[in-house]
Nucleic acid binder design. Sequence first.
DNA 1: AGTTTCGGCGCC
DNA 2: AAAGGGCGCCGAAACT
Length: 562
Amino acid sequence: MTDRWALAPAEDGGVELAPLGPDGLPAGPVRRERDLGEAVRGRPEVARWVWRSTAEVYPRLLAAGVRVERCYDVEDAETLLLGHAGRYGEPRSAAAALARLRGGPVPPDPPQRSAEPGSQSSLFEPQSVHLPLTDLVEVYADQLRRHDTTAHPDRMRLLTAAESAGMLVAAEMNRAGLPWSAETHRRVLHELLGERYAGGGEPRRLAELADEVSGAFGRRVRPDLPADVVKAFAQAGIKVRSTRRWEIESVDHPAVKPLIEYKKLYRIWVAHGWSWLQDWVRDGRFRPEFQAGGTVTGRWVTNGGGALQIPKVIRRAVVADPGWRLVVADADQMEPRVLAAISRDPGLMEVAGRATDLYQSVSDRAFSGDRDQAKLAVLGAVYGQTSGDGLKNLAALRRRFPKAVAYVDDAARAGEEGRLVRTWLGRTCPPAAGAGDAGEEAGIPQDEPSGQPAEEGWMPGYASTNSRARGRFARNFVVQGSAADWALLLLAALRQACAGMAAELVFFQHDEVIVHCPEEEAEAVVAAIREASDLAGRLTFGATPVRFPFTTAVVECYADAK
DNA sequence: AGTTTCGGCGCC
DNA sequence: AAAGGGCGCCGAAACT
């Protein structure tokens, strides 16, 4: 078997390579070559490259003009395998894995660096732990064996492969960048915020709104200081606990309207204003640093630039190159479709087997009526809503789709009790207990360290507040995480489909993908998305009637897609 | 002076 | 009264 090779950059700038056998160990001598790019370019027959870290190797390959079809990221797999074994907090570097294997002292992971604007910093990871190829391969062979000990080895193999593919996609997206018109962005900012004043102070429109707020209160109030605003309301005889929009928008006071408008525009100004443009856009491209698998649920994050939170109005600045188009594709009602697939609820699968609006169908079946109420009820079940409109219809939902609701209820109970919960492919949610502070770092609600919980809960004998929060976390985890599993397979399939074209994946946000391509390729890309979606559904969830339709738009400007 | 947390809101 | 999950980002406030 020579289709799988391992690769390890050497400290002298060269590279070590070896073909691997079925057991993951070298099937031939280790080669040493001078040039990483040439070494890979010269071996097009290799179907999968095994390496320590995609972020270390692949940007260098891309810079040399070399793409690979598949890879296996040892450190990413280590994270997933440790998690599956319930050992979430342990160091995940290849060096640590080797130390565990050999029984030596386990080195802690190097601290995560934070991104700086415009830095292509993953080109080199100065603090990465270098590992000779023979050591790396020892870890890899062990990981292959560990896959076999998981609950579903086939799924686990699919998961590590899929996430490695995601890392290739992320690196390629980072290199491509999102087409961005700085001129349009400036125009939008000027329309919304007015002129900038010298000295970096707030722009005209914000200054006017701040004056309106002050005028309404009868004294100088800074709308960007919550404490100041709360005090001003109190002096006006209105008690508010915070200045969150949902809390103040029902308040009857002349300051409310300009205040809400101020907050909205202030947000644009500080997070996506002129200084953001200066920092993040170069040569017509916004280059966030996408990071595949950056969260415990498997969703991606971006490091810097806030690429996953681009406000709708700012999307007008995302403009295709001349003669090119953006194919914007958005998965329709992804969460309930995923829930149907993982719970195998017959009724929900039947509904999710159609490409038509799923929430409308749920509504027709479960409580003949309101589509929006159906959506609230479904999302409430997925998120663990404890009050409000969603709860009203939960009983009806439970009656019509018992297996689906039971699936998330079971996950919630497991989370409350501190048991492991997994996504469909086997990504594992960190348990609250026994994971050191890894769970806390990952945002998992923790119980009090010992003795009587600080908060007994609102009803004696019931789980503590934190334990219920963990339940909601786990409930959501199985759906959101399984959706992320599926999305990785989708990206991998779409990437393969685009390989022969000029088309490039340039953006990905949970259930939405943008491909930048020449106009004449657009229809082929639309078809590729449909096929990739079908393939991803089958690969991820096996044989189910569930479909994952996309809404696609071929546009020149992102804002025109919806 | 530098670092961490908080409040609020953007996206899904 | 308790107010759905996941993230990132920013300035201000709170800390060391």
